[in-house]
Design a protein around this nucleic acid. Structure first.
Length: 566
DNA sequence: ATTAGGG
DNA sequence: CCCTAAT
């Protein structure tokens, strides 16, 4: 192990290319690193985007990191920080992490039981709530890393150091903020002022110095506040919202460092300037750390769970995850959606190592389905949820799990048959059947069959099979014969071998026919005429027939509307 | 399992 | 066309 004097952490300020938020040097043997799945996973989530290589290996200390590994429980043990490069007994690992890095680091510190914090936590006190409230869903977006020194403002190095009180003589430089690029956040300004309010003059001075690169003798708090917040705002505007966070934890003569980076796209919901500037401040929680030197396996276990909590701000256990997830859940995803996500994910995952980009619009739904998967115990483990939460954007869905809710019974009829088709196969492109005006009854039967065959070959998509005229006619006849509502009957008699037309489909089609047949308003008619160009409309004769039938067998509920109209 | 109805 | 609730 190496003496603390060999501390190599300084690289940060030197490596001007990096925006350092926090530098932590951690136990040299790396023992503090989480060994359990939770933690590794957590790291994995943080290590979301594979663009880190841009930063250069010299800085990163590892290359070709494969985030996917982190998701793989099997590989866990070997993965565990195989991206931590041991160098001359100095564990020098640089890890680029996502937004929540601070918490993660805190967790690490906590777990390492080596964090020694100074008293400058008042700021943290004020920050914590905000931090905790911060949305965890922000994607770890592309690392829009801009190496130009000028692209960020001066150093904002709020250092906190103190001698270890744990009796082990360990020292933790909890934070050295060399530079922070500040993400844009509109909301941030308010936060700033309130947070600045709570800072002491000294702290303000420090912040000022680090921000503007010079000292100031002004003791006026307001003045300092104004300038700092101004600087913060400028930061936000100027910069592309990327920041690095590096933390040092030196202890027991061994050291290692991690460089964490948070990057935010300006447009994304990002942490406030304060989050990125001040987050490095250890949170009060860390103060409660029991400092136990020997990290036994057991303690590691505890650690891992603790870390998880810290990192995610809530218990990672399956029971606990719902709370946060549900916050975002707006709507239960449809089955189709789940199925499709399944599909997407499984293919996507192979390429992107478990990290998938999903746009904001999709986020909610994804989260929703995510939750569903978790709840249903589809093998979606904690990791899934964690990942989800961390990036807020992607579902990790277990492979090849059919989304069938217990309905596995085979039924002789149509529905299951067709369901399978839907699950596995595709509908053909909509032009499958350009219905010719001819309406031979046999033809449609064949149509259906060929359609079905064709469907099996293609990849799945929305199943929309246009109703051929012959089908429509058959339907109308069926209705006239058996009456409205006897869909299964009609189906059995008129569409016996057609997997594409379930009784429900018949019903739907009938409903549509009714709508089409009923007298339309001017606007409706216009829309209709427009549509005519695209697809052929239903012959008036049929519509008339439908209308007649509608009178005879009023469609439930529809009848009301019709009666009121007539 | 079928049907009605909302989306 | 899909999904769900209601029957």
């Amino acid at each position: 192990m190496v003496d603390a004097s060999e501390d190599s952490s300084i690289t940060l300020s030197d490596s001007a290319n990096i925006f350092v938020k926090k530098l932590a040097q951690v136990g040299g043997d790396g023992s503090f690193f989480p060994t359990l799945e939770d933690d590794v996973i957590g790291v994995g989530h943080l290590l979301a985007e594979p663009k880190f290589n841009d930063l250069g290996d010299d800085v990163l200390g590892f290359d070709g990191f494969n985030p996917h590994k982190c998701f793989n429980i099997e590989e866990r043990s070997s993965v565990e920080f195989d991206y931590i490069k041991a160098d001359n007994d100095v564990l020098d690992s640089n890890i680029i992490l996502g937004e929540r890095t601070t918490e993660f680091i805190d967790g690490m510190l906590e777990g390492a039981d080596k964090a020694v914090l100074d008293g400058r936590n008042n700021l943290l006190d004020t920050c914590e709530d905000y931090l905790l409230d911060a949305e965890f869903a922000d994607e770890v977006s592309d690392l829009n890393y801009i190496p130009s020194k000028g692209s960020y403002m001066g150093n904002l190095a709020l250092e906190s150091q103190s001698a270890g009180s744990g009796g082990r003589g360990c020292v933790a430089e909890t934070s050295e903020l060399s530079a922070a690029r500040i993400p844009v956040l509109e909301v941030a300004c308010d936060q700033n002022s309130s947070l600045l309010d709570k800072m002491t003059v000294d702290e303000l001075h420090e912040a000022f110095r680090n921000m503007y690169g010079r000292e100031t003798v002004v003791m006026d708090k307001q003045w300092l506040k104004r300038h700092i917040s101004f600087g913060l705002q400028n930061h936000a505007e100027l910069d592309n919202c990327s920041s690095l966070l590096e933390c040092h934890v030196t202890s027991n003569g061994t050291e290692s460092k991690m460089i964490l980076s948070t990057t935010d796209e300006c447009s994304a919901r990002a942490s406030s300037p304060f989050t990125s500037v001040f987050t490095f401040k250890t949170k009060p929680r860390v103060q409660h750390v029991k400092r136990e030197r020997d990290a036994s396996i057991d303690s590691l276990k505890t650690l891992s769970s603790e870390v998880s909590k810290v990192v995610f701000g809530f218990p990672c256990s399956e029971e606990g995850e719902g709370a946060i997830v549900s916050k975002k859940r707006l709507r239960k995803p449809t089955r189709r959606y789940i199925e499709e996500s399944l599909e997407q994910n499984s293919s996507h995952r192979r390429k992107k190592c478990g990290v998938s980009d999903i746009f904001l619009d999709d986020r909610i739904l994804h989260i929703g389905s995510q939750k569903q998967h978790c709840q249903k115990g589809f093998g979606a483990t904690t990791m899934v949820c964690q990942d989800e939460l961390f990036k807020g954007t992607c579902i990790q869905v277990p492979f090849g799990l059919p989304v069938q809710k217990g309905r596995s019974k085979k039924k002789g009829h149509e529905s299951d048959n067709r369901k399978d088709i839907r699950l596995l196969d595709s509908a053909v492109d909509s032009d499958v059947e350009s219905f010719s005006a001819e309406s031979h009854d046999e033809m449609s039967e064949n149509d259906c069959l060929t359609r079905t065959k064709m469907q099996k070959c293609k990849s799945r998509r929305k199943h929309h099979i246009f109703w051929s005229l012959s089908e429509v006619i058959k339907l109308v006849e069926g209705v006239s014969k058996h009456g409205v509502g006897r869909w299964t009957e009609i189906k059995k008699l008129l569409f016996p071998s057609s997997a594409n037309r379930t009784s429900v489909d018949l019903k739907d089609k009938w409903r549509n026919l009714l709508r089409a047949s009923c007298p339309r308003s001017q606007s409706n008619r216009e829309v209709e005429s427009k549509r005519k160009h695209v697809s052929q409309s239903i012959p008036q004769s049929i519509l008339r027939r439908v209308r007649e039938l509608a009178v005879i067998h009023p469609y439930p509920r529809e009848r009301k509307a019709q009666l009121s109209r007539t």
